[in-house]
Amino acid sequence: MRSSLPWLVLLVVTAAPASAHHSFAVFFDDQTIIEVTGSVTDFHFTNPHAIISFTVKNAKGEVEPWRAETNAVTLLRRRGWTKDSLTVGETITVEGWRARDGSNYMRMRTVKRADGTVLGTPVSNQRVD
């Protein structure tokens, strides 16, 4: 599904993270960071990458499904994440790199809860660790 959400925050960046598992740059726009806010519908905490599924209301009030791919779960664990870090129904804001094909799919950089708390230890730079 493609989205034209007007409230996506776009930031120009100059560097990209890398996936050791599959090529990051091929699948994600490494020059643009977006922020998407929505409600968690599922959190699949397995390697090679965890998946956060969430729904987002677009400008027309329609609900769109989104997914955010994370780093490897083993790396997330070291940054304080667990399989219970996210609860279905909670509101989160995901920041990351959007899929190049324009679909509602992104690579996560950070996740914030509704109160602004950032989950786990934030990534200090663009490296995957």
Partner: peptide, 18 residues
Amino acid sequence: HIFPYECDPSFAANYQAK
């Protein structure tokens, strides 16, 4: 210590569904 990797192939379904 290292963590188990235990790769889950169902991850690929996310790309099939796009």
